[in-house]
Design a protein around this nucleic acid. Sequence first.
DNA 1: GACTATTGCATGCGCATGCATCTAATGTCT
DNA 2: AGACATTAGATGCATGCGCATGCAATAGTC
Lengths: 147, 147
Amino acid sequence: MVHDMTATKVSGGTGETTADVREWRELLARHADLTCALDRALQAGHSLGMSEYEVLERLAELPEHSAKVATIAKSVHLSQSALSRVIGRLETAGLVERHMCPEDRRAVNVRLTDEGLHRQQEAQPTQRDVLAQRLHAPLVKSCDPLA
Amino acid sequence: MVHDMTATKVSGGTGETTADVREWRELLARHADLTCALDRALQAGHSLGMSEYEVLERLAELPEHSAKVATIAKSVHLSQSALSRVIGRLETAGLVERHMCPEDRRAVNVRLTDEGLHRQQEAQPTQRDVLAQRLHAPLVKSCDPLA
DNA sequence: GACTATTGCATGCGCATGCATCTAATGTCT
DNA sequence: AGACATTAGATGCATGCGCATGCAATAGTC
């Protein structure tokens, strides 16, 4: 115990890297790798960004293929404004429709169109493949265009 | 084994969520939580963005507190252009200095100033605290299909 | 009913990022 | 040496994000 580095020192000396920091950097690296690969794969194969795909996916998981914006916001890591714009892009692309919510006329129901569902179903294998391939692969730290 | 969901189906039916997807969503959630918290803490307490802090930290880890841009680029998940601008901001703030590299006059050596080192050392406990507090804390935001 | 607070979403704005491109310095041929 | 390819880093531009704000509808209070 002479050299215990895991103790709760308020903040280690200048250079040492704690276990937390190492774990955090791995998380960052993994996230960067996957984000980059997923975004490229979805964009190249399906003209969808990650945020767009994510919203389509959440809607596709619901039996009615429809939810209020606020509901979607809870399961997506986007600000409310960013989500609003993502939905705007999806709407322009014809993949979702916005409808006024009858019970609460402030709210907006977002519903997957047939084409939206189709696009999500087409894109899903792409996502699954990238995840299967890289989620547990050793980190290479390459987010290059030609990865 | 009648209901094995972990098998390597090319891509499950419409609604099912594979283990990979669950893990990916947890990664996303953890990343979002930490990124957000770290950025806020560093910004509020030290007027530093996460990228800025990260670069300062990498330089501080080196004995000479100095490295070429290309070297820094290898350990930070930023494009070369983004890194160039981060260094620009740090330089404007007086936290690093750019010097022409004598052996290769295309290259630029980035060196931590005294103030830069000081700022990094001030900010480090903030980073460590946020990590200690949230890296393994239960996730607030649900990763599950729409709640 | 009239008045205020709150909620749900959209939008103006500024900022950081990535891509494509540019300049300058090196390296590599012949 | 001269010509072309490669590499290091900076910058114009487009895009996506978050914050702050605005508008409309609902909830709560009297």
